[in-house]
Nucleic acid binder design. Sequence first.
DNA 1: ACCTGAACACCGTTCAAGT
DNA 2: ACCTGAACACCGTTCAAGT
Lengths: 230, 230
Amino acid sequence: MTTDTDRPAQPRIPLSRDRVLQAAVRLADDSGIDAVTMRRLASELGVEAMSLYYHVASKEELFDGMVDMVVAEIEERCGGFSVPGDLDWKSALRKRILTARQVMLRHPWAPGVLETRTTMSPRMVLYFDTVLGIMVEGGFSFDLGHHAMHALGSRVLGFNQELFAPDSDTQEDQADEMLAQMAERVPYIVGMMQEIVHDGPEETLGWCDDQTEFEFSLDLLLDGLEQRLG
Amino acid sequence: MTTDTDRPAQPRIPLSRDRVLQAAVRLADDSGIDAVTMRRLASELGVEAMSLYYHVASKEELFDGMVDMVVAEIEERCGGFSVPGDLDWKSALRKRILTARQVMLRHPWAPGVLETRTTMSPRMVLYFDTVLGIMVEGGFSFDLGHHAMHALGSRVLGFNQELFAPDSDTQEDQADEMLAQMAERVPYIVGMMQEIVHDGPEETLGWCDDQTEFEFSLDLLLDGLEQRLG
DNA sequence: ACCTGAACACCGTTCAAGT
DNA sequence: ACCTGAACACCGTTCAAGT
Protein backbone atom coordinates (compact mmCIF):
# COMPACT_ATOMS: atom_id res chain seq x y z
CA MET A 1 0.00 0.00 0.00
CA THR A 2 1.25 3.41 -1.00
CA THR A 3 -0.18 6.80 -0.15
CA ASP A 4 -3.33 8.26 -1.69
CA THR A 5 -1.67 8.94 -5.03
CA ASP A 6 -0.36 5.90 -6.77
CA ARG A 7 0.72 7.42 -10.07
CA PRO A 8 3.75 5.66 -11.59
CA ALA A 9 6.61 8.17 -11.61
CA GLN A 10 5.74 11.84 -10.96
CA PRO A 11 4.59 12.27 -7.35
CA ARG A 12 2.60 15.36 -8.40
CA ILE A 13 4.61 18.44 -9.21
CA PRO A 14 2.26 21.37 -9.63
CA LEU A 15 2.22 23.02 -13.03
CA SER A 16 3.98 26.33 -13.55
CA ARG A 17 4.70 28.58 -16.47
CA ASP A 18 8.28 27.42 -16.46
CA ARG A 19 7.41 23.75 -16.42
CA VAL A 20 5.00 24.31 -19.30
CA LEU A 21 7.65 26.05 -21.38
CA GLN A 22 10.30 23.47 -20.62
CA ALA A 23 7.96 20.66 -21.63
CA ALA A 24 7.06 22.51 -24.82
CA VAL A 25 10.71 22.95 -25.78
CA ARG A 26 11.46 19.32 -25.10
CA LEU A 27 8.44 18.22 -27.08
CA ALA A 28 9.46 20.38 -30.04
CA ASP A 29 13.03 19.08 -29.86
CA ASP A 30 11.87 15.48 -29.81
CA SER A 31 8.89 15.47 -32.14
CA GLY A 32 9.00 18.69 -34.13
CA ILE A 33 7.08 21.92 -33.75
CA ASP A 34 3.91 20.51 -35.29
CA ALA A 35 3.66 18.11 -32.38
CA VAL A 36 3.31 21.08 -30.04
CA THR A 37 -0.45 21.35 -29.79
CA MET A 38 -2.14 22.39 -26.60
CA ARG A 39 -3.74 18.98 -26.22
CA ARG A 40 -0.57 17.03 -26.84
CA LEU A 41 1.52 19.27 -24.61
CA ALA A 42 -1.02 18.93 -21.83
CA SER A 43 -1.06 15.15 -22.05
CA GLU A 44 2.73 15.20 -21.92
CA LEU A 45 2.34 17.00 -18.59
CA GLY A 46 -0.39 14.66 -17.39
CA VAL A 47 -3.00 17.36 -17.41
CA GLU A 48 -5.95 18.58 -19.48
CA ALA A 49 -5.40 21.03 -22.35
CA MET A 50 -7.39 23.75 -20.66
CA SER A 51 -5.13 23.78 -17.63
CA LEU A 52 -2.37 25.24 -19.77
CA TYR A 53 -4.35 28.41 -20.22
CA TYR A 54 -3.93 29.18 -16.61
CA HIS A 55 -0.18 29.54 -17.08
CA VAL A 56 -0.03 30.81 -20.63
CA ALA A 57 -2.48 33.17 -22.28
CA SER A 58 -2.50 31.63 -25.74
CA LYS A 59 -0.51 29.48 -28.09
CA GLU A 60 1.25 32.55 -29.43
CA GLU A 61 2.43 33.39 -25.93
CA LEU A 62 3.57 29.80 -25.55
CA PHE A 63 5.72 30.22 -28.65
CA ASP A 64 7.05 33.52 -27.32
CA GLY A 65 8.06 31.75 -24.15
CA MET A 66 9.72 28.88 -25.99
CA VAL A 67 11.84 31.28 -28.01
CA ASP A 68 12.80 33.10 -24.84
CA MET A 69 13.98 29.81 -23.33
CA VAL A 70 16.30 29.35 -26.28
CA VAL A 71 17.67 32.85 -25.91
CA ALA A 72 18.23 32.13 -22.24
CA GLU A 73 20.28 29.12 -23.27
CA ILE A 74 22.42 31.34 -25.48
CA GLU A 75 22.88 33.74 -22.61
CA GLU A 76 23.98 30.91 -20.35
CA ARG A 77 26.55 29.67 -22.85
CA CYS A 78 27.88 33.18 -23.30
CA GLY A 79 28.28 33.56 -19.53
CA GLY A 80 25.74 36.37 -19.50
CA PHE A 81 25.04 39.17 -21.92
CA SER A 82 27.62 41.89 -21.51
CA VAL A 83 29.98 43.67 -23.84
CA PRO A 84 33.50 42.31 -23.44
CA GLY A 85 36.26 44.85 -23.13
CA ASP A 86 39.29 42.96 -24.30
CA LEU A 87 38.68 41.32 -27.68
CA ASP A 88 38.44 43.12 -30.99
CA TRP A 89 34.89 43.46 -32.29
CA LYS A 90 35.33 41.04 -35.17
CA SER A 91 36.41 37.98 -33.22
CA ALA A 92 34.13 38.85 -30.30
CA LEU A 93 31.14 38.96 -32.64
CA ARG A 94 32.20 35.86 -34.51
CA LYS A 95 32.54 33.93 -31.29
CA ARG A 96 29.19 35.04 -29.92
CA ILE A 97 27.39 34.26 -33.14
CA LEU A 98 28.93 30.80 -33.42
CA THR A 99 27.87 30.14 -29.84
CA ALA A 100 24.33 31.14 -30.71
CA ARG A 101 24.52 28.80 -33.65
CA GLN A 102 25.40 25.85 -31.44
CA VAL A 103 22.31 26.47 -29.40
CA MET A 104 20.11 26.82 -32.48
CA LEU A 105 21.38 23.52 -33.83
CA ARG A 106 19.97 21.81 -30.75
CA HIS A 107 16.55 23.37 -31.38
CA PRO A 108 15.91 23.07 -35.12
CA TRP A 109 12.38 24.38 -34.76
CA ALA A 110 13.55 27.65 -33.20
CA PRO A 111 14.43 29.61 -36.39
CA GLY A 112 11.03 28.99 -37.90
CA VAL A 113 9.16 30.01 -34.77
CA LEU A 114 11.39 33.00 -34.25
CA GLU A 115 10.55 34.38 -37.67
CA THR A 116 6.86 34.36 -36.89
CA ARG A 117 7.27 36.30 -33.62
CA THR A 118 5.74 39.70 -33.67
CA THR A 119 7.38 40.96 -30.52
CA MET A 120 10.73 40.69 -28.78
CA SER A 121 11.24 39.57 -25.22
CA PRO A 122 13.35 41.81 -22.97
CA ARG A 123 16.03 39.13 -22.93
CA MET A 124 16.16 39.18 -26.71
CA VAL A 125 16.44 42.95 -26.75
CA LEU A 126 19.30 42.60 -24.30
CA TYR A 127 21.02 40.17 -26.63
CA PHE A 128 20.74 42.58 -29.54
CA ASP A 129 22.05 45.36 -27.35
CA THR A 130 25.26 43.48 -26.60
CA VAL A 131 25.75 42.60 -30.26
CA LEU A 132 25.34 46.24 -31.19
CA GLY A 133 27.53 47.18 -28.23
CA ILE A 134 30.37 45.02 -29.48
CA MET A 135 30.22 46.86 -32.78
CA VAL A 136 29.98 50.33 -31.32
CA GLU A 137 32.84 49.73 -28.89
CA GLY A 138 34.75 48.44 -31.91
CA GLY A 139 34.36 51.75 -33.69
CA PHE A 140 31.06 51.42 -35.57
CA SER A 141 28.82 54.44 -35.89
CA PHE A 142 25.25 53.81 -34.74
CA ASP A 143 24.22 54.04 -38.36
CA LEU A 144 26.67 51.41 -39.58
CA GLY A 145 25.76 49.24 -36.62
CA HIS A 146 22.11 49.50 -37.57
CA HIS A 147 22.80 48.51 -41.16
CA ALA A 148 25.01 45.68 -39.91
CA MET A 149 22.20 44.20 -37.82
CA HIS A 150 19.95 44.11 -40.86
CA ALA A 151 22.67 42.69 -43.07
CA LEU A 152 23.50 39.93 -40.64
CA GLY A 153 19.82 39.17 -40.27
CA SER A 154 19.18 35.74 -38.84
CA ARG A 155 22.91 35.14 -38.64
CA VAL A 156 23.12 37.29 -35.53
CA LEU A 157 21.16 34.53 -33.89
CA GLY A 158 23.17 31.76 -35.43
CA PHE A 159 21.17 30.48 -38.33
CA ASN A 160 21.41 30.76 -42.06
CA GLN A 161 17.86 30.90 -43.20
CA GLU A 162 17.64 28.21 -45.83
CA LEU A 163 15.30 29.04 -48.67
CA PHE A 164 14.09 25.48 -48.86
CA ALA A 165 13.99 23.06 -46.00
CA PRO A 166 14.07 19.65 -47.63
CA ASP A 167 13.86 16.57 -45.47
CA SER A 168 17.44 15.37 -45.43
CA ASP A 169 16.51 12.33 -47.52
CA THR A 170 14.83 14.37 -50.19
CA GLN A 171 17.84 16.59 -50.73
CA GLU A 172 19.88 14.05 -52.66
CA ASP A 173 16.95 12.52 -54.48
CA GLN A 174 15.89 15.89 -55.75
CA ALA A 175 19.39 16.61 -56.99
CA ASP A 176 19.44 13.37 -58.92
CA GLU A 177 16.04 14.02 -60.37
CA MET A 178 17.13 17.41 -61.59
CA LEU A 179 20.28 16.10 -63.19
CA ALA A 180 18.21 13.52 -65.00
CA GLN A 181 15.17 15.49 -66.07
CA MET A 182 16.26 19.00 -66.96
CA ALA A 183 19.96 18.56 -67.43
CA GLU A 184 20.29 20.50 -70.68
CA ARG A 185 18.10 23.37 -69.45
CA VAL A 186 20.13 24.12 -66.31
CA PRO A 187 23.76 23.80 -67.41
CA TYR A 188 25.24 25.86 -64.61
CA ILE A 189 23.62 23.96 -61.78
CA VAL A 190 24.55 20.68 -63.40
CA GLY A 191 28.12 21.86 -63.74
CA MET A 192 28.25 23.00 -60.17
CA MET A 193 26.85 19.79 -58.80
CA GLN A 194 29.22 17.65 -60.77
CA GLU A 195 32.24 19.60 -59.63
CA ILE A 196 31.20 19.68 -55.99
CA VAL A 197 30.33 16.00 -55.90
CA HIS A 198 33.77 15.20 -57.32
CA ASP A 199 35.79 17.56 -55.17
CA GLY A 200 33.89 17.19 -51.92
CA PRO A 201 35.45 15.30 -49.02
CA GLU A 202 33.96 11.95 -48.10
CA GLU A 203 32.35 13.10 -44.92
CA THR A 204 30.20 15.76 -46.59
CA LEU A 205 26.77 14.17 -46.80
CA GLY A 206 24.57 15.57 -49.50
CA TRP A 207 26.52 18.38 -51.04
CA CYS A 208 26.38 21.28 -48.64
CA ASP A 209 28.26 21.44 -45.39
CA ASP A 210 26.04 23.80 -43.39
CA GLN A 211 28.75 24.85 -40.99
CA THR A 212 31.09 25.76 -43.85
CA GLU A 213 28.40 27.75 -45.60
CA PHE A 214 27.45 29.53 -42.41
CA GLU A 215 30.99 30.58 -41.69
CA PHE A 216 31.61 31.60 -45.29
CA SER A 217 28.74 34.06 -45.35
CA LEU A 218 29.39 35.24 -41.82
CA ASP A 219 32.98 36.06 -42.70
CA LEU A 220 31.92 37.62 -45.97
CA LEU A 221 29.71 39.98 -44.04
CA LEU A 222 32.19 40.69 -41.26
CA ASP A 223 34.95 41.43 -43.78
CA GLY A 224 32.62 43.69 -45.70
CA LEU A 225 31.64 45.57 -42.57
CA GLU A 226 35.28 45.99 -41.63
CA GLN A 227 35.85 47.64 -44.96
CA ARG A 228 32.86 49.99 -44.64
CA LEU A 229 34.39 50.94 -41.33
CA GLY A 230 37.68 52.21 -42.78
CA MET B 1 -35.96 36.60 -68.77
CA THR B 2 -32.38 35.46 -69.09
CA THR B 3 -31.05 32.03 -69.95
CA ASP B 4 -31.08 29.03 -67.65
CA THR B 5 -28.30 30.39 -65.47
CA ASP B 6 -29.09 33.63 -63.75
CA ARG B 7 -26.06 33.99 -61.47
CA PRO B 8 -25.05 37.62 -60.90
CA ALA B 9 -21.63 38.05 -62.56
CA GLN B 10 -19.76 34.86 -63.55
CA PRO B 11 -21.64 33.04 -66.33
CA ARG B 12 -19.99 29.76 -65.27
CA ILE B 13 -16.29 29.42 -66.01
CA PRO B 14 -15.19 25.88 -65.26
CA LEU B 15 -12.59 25.46 -62.57
CA SER B 16 -9.00 24.71 -63.51
CA ARG B 17 -5.74 24.38 -61.68
CA ASP B 18 -4.69 27.75 -62.99
CA ARG B 19 -7.86 29.48 -61.90
CA VAL B 20 -7.52 27.92 -58.46
CA LEU B 21 -3.94 29.15 -58.08
CA GLN B 22 -4.77 32.61 -59.36
CA ALA B 23 -7.63 32.93 -56.90
CA ALA B 24 -5.41 31.71 -54.07
CA VAL B 25 -2.73 34.30 -54.84
CA ARG B 26 -5.30 37.06 -55.05
CA LEU B 27 -6.88 35.96 -51.77
CA ALA B 28 -3.50 35.91 -50.02
CA ASP B 29 -2.65 39.33 -51.44
CA ASP B 30 -5.93 40.79 -50.26
CA SER B 31 -6.51 39.08 -46.94
CA GLY B 32 -3.25 37.48 -45.89
CA ILE B 33 -2.07 33.90 -46.07
CA ASP B 34 -4.15 32.80 -43.10
CA ALA B 35 -7.27 33.57 -45.07
CA VAL B 36 -6.26 30.94 -47.59
CA THR B 37 -8.16 27.94 -46.28
CA MET B 38 -9.62 25.36 -48.60
CA ARG B 39 -13.14 26.32 -47.57
CA ARG B 40 -12.62 30.05 -47.97
CA LEU B 41 -10.83 29.68 -51.27
CA ALA B 42 -13.59 27.47 -52.59
CA SER B 43 -16.28 29.93 -51.60
CA GLU B 44 -14.32 32.66 -53.33
CA LEU B 45 -14.60 30.55 -56.48
CA GLY B 46 -18.28 29.80 -55.92
CA VAL B 47 -17.67 26.14 -55.35
CA GLU B 48 -17.46 23.60 -52.53
CA ALA B 49 -14.17 22.99 -50.72
CA MET B 50 -13.93 19.43 -51.92
CA SER B 51 -13.99 20.46 -55.56
CA LEU B 52 -10.55 21.98 -55.14
CA TYR B 53 -9.07 18.56 -54.55
CA TYR B 54 -9.83 17.63 -58.08
CA HIS B 55 -7.34 20.26 -59.29
CA VAL B 56 -4.84 20.26 -56.48
CA ALA B 57 -3.72 17.28 -54.46
CA SER B 58 -3.39 18.96 -51.07
CA LYS B 59 -2.92 22.29 -49.40
CA GLU B 60 0.84 21.86 -49.58
CA GLU B 61 0.58 21.47 -53.35
CA LEU B 62 -1.60 24.56 -53.43
CA PHE B 63 1.16 26.50 -51.68
CA ASP B 64 3.73 25.07 -54.09
CA GLY B 65 1.63 26.32 -56.96
CA MET B 66 1.18 29.77 -55.43
CA VAL B 67 4.92 30.17 -55.04
CA ASP B 68 5.42 29.06 -58.61
CA MET B 69 2.99 31.76 -59.77
CA VAL B 70 5.14 34.35 -58.05
CA VAL B 71 8.30 33.01 -59.66
CA ALA B 72 6.50 33.15 -63.01
CA GLU B 73 5.84 36.81 -62.34
CA ILE B 74 9.52 37.39 -61.74
CA GLU B 75 10.33 35.59 -64.97
CA GLU B 76 7.88 37.78 -66.84
CA ARG B 77 9.37 40.98 -65.47
CA CYS B 78 12.85 39.78 -66.35
CA GLY B 79 11.77 39.07 -69.92
CA GLY B 80 12.44 35.37 -69.44
CA PHE B 81 15.15 33.53 -67.61
CA SER B 82 18.35 33.60 -69.62
CA VAL B 83 21.89 34.65 -68.89
CA PRO B 84 22.58 38.05 -70.45
CA GLY B 85 25.81 38.35 -72.42
CA ASP B 86 26.49 42.05 -72.27
CA LEU B 87 26.38 43.33 -68.70
CA ASP B 88 28.99 42.65 -66.03
CA TRP B 89 27.92 40.09 -63.45
CA LYS B 90 27.58 42.55 -60.62
CA SER B 91 25.10 44.94 -62.15
CA ALA B 92 23.29 42.11 -63.94
CA LEU B 93 22.78 40.33 -60.65
CA ARG B 94 21.85 43.47 -58.83
CA LYS B 95 19.24 44.32 -61.42
CA ARG B 96 17.70 40.87 -61.43
CA ILE B 97 17.54 40.71 -57.67
CA LEU B 98 15.93 44.11 -57.35
CA THR B 99 13.37 43.05 -59.94
CA ALA B 100 12.59 39.97 -57.89
CA ARG B 101 12.20 42.23 -54.89
CA GLN B 102 9.58 44.34 -56.62
CA VAL B 103 7.52 41.24 -57.24
CA MET B 104 7.92 40.03 -53.66
CA LEU B 105 6.73 43.37 -52.34
CA ARG B 106 3.43 42.82 -54.12
CA HIS B 107 3.03 39.44 -52.42
CA PRO B 108 4.04 39.92 -48.80
CA TRP B 109 2.97 36.39 -47.90
CA ALA B 110 5.35 34.83 -50.43
CA PRO B 111 8.59 34.85 -48.39
CA GLY B 112 6.97 33.06 -45.49
CA VAL B 113 5.40 30.40 -47.66
CA LEU B 114 8.56 29.99 -49.68
CA GLU B 115 10.58 29.18 -46.59
CA THR B 116 8.28 26.31 -45.72
CA ARG B 117 8.53 24.71 -49.17
CA THR B 118 10.26 21.40 -49.18
CA THR B 119 10.70 21.13 -52.90
CA MET B 120 11.55 23.43 -55.80
CA SER B 121 9.50 23.80 -58.93
CA PRO B 122 11.33 23.45 -62.26
CA ARG B 123 10.76 27.15 -62.88
CA MET B 124 12.46 27.96 -59.60
CA VAL B 125 15.40 25.73 -60.47
CA LEU B 126 15.62 27.56 -63.76
CA TYR B 127 15.73 30.87 -61.93
CA PHE B 128 18.59 29.70 -59.74
CA ASP B 129 20.40 28.42 -62.79
CA THR B 130 20.41 31.85 -64.43
CA VAL B 131 21.56 33.52 -61.22
CA LEU B 132 24.43 31.04 -60.96
CA GLY B 133 25.02 31.44 -64.69
CA ILE B 134 25.48 35.18 -64.34
CA MET B 135 28.15 34.55 -61.74
CA VAL B 136 29.94 31.82 -63.63
CA GLU B 137 29.99 33.83 -66.87
CA GLY B 138 31.34 36.67 -64.75
CA GLY B 139 34.32 34.61 -63.69
CA PHE B 140 33.10 32.77 -60.56
CA SER B 141 34.27 29.23 -59.95
CA PHE B 142 31.42 26.80 -59.32
CA ASP B 143 32.58 26.62 -55.74
CA LEU B 144 32.47 30.36 -55.16
CA GLY B 145 29.12 30.50 -56.95
CA HIS B 146 27.79 27.85 -54.62
CA HIS B 147 28.95 29.73 -51.54
CA ALA B 148 27.52 32.92 -52.98
CA MET B 149 24.06 31.39 -53.35
CA HIS B 150 24.08 30.41 -49.70
CA ALA B 151 25.40 33.78 -48.59
CA LEU B 152 22.79 35.69 -50.54
CA GLY B 153 20.12 33.38 -49.17
CA SER B 154 16.66 34.87 -49.47
CA ARG B 155 18.12 37.94 -51.08
CA VAL B 156 18.49 36.08 -54.38
CA LEU B 157 14.72 36.09 -54.43
CA GLY B 158 14.39 39.66 -53.37
CA PHE B 159 13.64 39.63 -49.70
CA ASN B 160 15.54 40.39 -46.57
CA GLN B 161 14.24 37.91 -44.08
CA GLU B 162 13.26 40.04 -41.14
CA LEU B 163 13.82 38.38 -37.80
CA PHE B 164 10.65 39.84 -36.42
CA ALA B 165 7.59 40.74 -38.41
CA PRO B 166 5.82 43.33 -36.28
CA ASP B 167 2.52 44.70 -37.47
CA SER B 168 3.48 48.10 -38.77
CA ASP B 169 1.64 49.84 -35.91
CA THR B 170 3.40 47.84 -33.26
CA GLN B 171 6.86 48.71 -34.51
CA GLU B 172 6.91 52.25 -33.17
CA ASP B 173 4.99 51.46 -30.02
CA GLN B 174 7.44 48.75 -29.15
CA ALA B 175 10.37 51.07 -29.69
CA ASP B 176 8.85 53.61 -27.34
CA GLU B 177 8.12 51.00 -24.74
CA MET B 178 11.70 49.83 -24.81
CA LEU B 179 13.11 53.31 -24.48
CA ALA B 180 10.88 53.84 -21.49
CA GLN B 181 11.15 50.56 -19.65
CA MET B 182 14.69 49.28 -20.04
CA ALA B 183 16.54 52.39 -21.10
CA GLU B 184 19.50 52.05 -18.78
CA ARG B 185 19.93 48.34 -19.48
CA VAL B 186 20.24 48.68 -23.26
CA PRO B 187 22.38 51.77 -23.77
CA TYR B 188 23.52 50.96 -27.28
CA ILE B 189 20.08 50.41 -28.70
CA VAL B 190 18.84 53.55 -27.02
CA GLY B 191 21.76 55.49 -28.45
CA MET B 192 21.14 54.12 -31.91
CA MET B 193 17.46 54.91 -31.86
CA GLN B 194 17.99 58.42 -30.70
CA GLU B 195 20.54 59.14 -33.39
CA ILE B 196 18.49 57.61 -36.16
CA VAL B 197 15.30 59.36 -35.13
CA HIS B 198 17.13 62.66 -35.16
CA ASP B 199 19.02 62.20 -38.40
CA GLY B 200 16.38 60.37 -40.39
CA PRO B 201 14.56 62.13 -43.22
CA GLU B 202 10.92 63.01 -42.71
CA GLU B 203 9.54 60.42 -45.08
CA THR B 204 11.08 57.48 -43.23
CA LEU B 205 8.20 56.01 -41.28
CA GLY B 206 9.21 54.06 -38.23
CA TRP B 207 12.96 54.01 -38.32
CA CYS B 208 13.99 51.54 -40.94
CA ASP B 209 13.75 52.15 -44.64
CA ASP B 210 13.45 48.59 -45.92
CA GLN B 211 14.65 49.40 -49.41
CA THR B 212 17.77 51.10 -48.07
CA GLU B 213 18.54 48.20 -45.77
CA PHE B 214 17.99 45.71 -48.55
CA GLU B 215 20.35 47.47 -50.90
CA PHE B 216 22.95 47.99 -48.18
CA SER B 217 23.25 44.30 -47.41
CA LEU B 218 22.98 43.30 -51.04
CA ASP B 219 25.86 45.58 -51.96
CA LEU B 220 27.83 44.46 -48.93
CA LEU B 221 27.57 40.90 -50.18
CA LEU B 222 28.22 41.71 -53.82
CA ASP B 223 31.30 43.76 -52.93
CA GLY B 224 32.55 40.98 -50.69
CA LEU B 225 32.09 38.42 -53.43
CA GLU B 226 33.92 40.62 -55.90
CA GLN B 227 36.84 40.65 -53.53
CA ARG B 228 36.86 36.88 -53.04
CA LEU B 229 36.97 36.71 -56.81
CA GLY B 230 40.23 38.66 -57.20
C1' DA C 1 -14.66 14.34 -66.34
C1' DC C 2 -15.94 17.19 -62.89
C1' DC C 3 -18.24 18.38 -58.62
C1' DT C 4 -20.60 17.45 -53.97
C1' DG C 5 -22.57 15.90 -48.95
C1' DA C 6 -21.65 13.77 -45.13
C1' DA C 7 -18.39 12.47 -42.04
C1' DC C 8 -13.74 11.91 -39.56
C1' DA C 9 -10.18 13.32 -36.78
C1' DC C 10 -8.24 16.92 -35.50
C1' DC C 11 -7.38 22.19 -33.97
C1' DG C 12 -7.33 26.71 -30.45
C1' DT C 13 -10.20 28.78 -27.26
C1' DT C 14 -14.33 30.19 -24.01
C1' DC C 15 -16.87 29.71 -20.11
C1' DA C 16 -19.11 28.10 -16.31
C1' DA C 17 -18.15 24.88 -12.96
C1' DG C 18 -15.58 22.11 -9.80
C1' DT C 19 -11.98 21.53 -5.62
C1' DA D 1 -5.52 29.47 -6.63
C1' DC D 2 -5.53 25.98 -9.71
C1' DC D 3 -7.66 22.64 -12.73
C1' DT D 4 -11.52 20.54 -15.62
C1' DG D 5 -15.80 19.05 -18.95
C1' DA D 6 -18.49 20.32 -22.28
C1' DA D 7 -19.03 22.94 -26.12
C1' DC D 8 -18.03 26.24 -30.14
C1' DA D 9 -16.27 27.37 -34.37
C1' DC D 10 -13.16 26.22 -37.04
C1' DC D 11 -9.44 23.13 -39.83
C1' DG D 12 -7.57 19.52 -43.89
C1' DT D 13 -8.92 15.44 -45.95
C1' DT D 14 -11.44 10.81 -47.37
C1' DC D 15 -14.77 8.50 -49.67
C1' DA D 16 -18.73 7.12 -51.75
C1' DA D 17 -22.01 9.22 -54.48
C1' DG D 18 -24.03 12.27 -57.75
C1' DT D 19 -24.32 14.48 -62.82
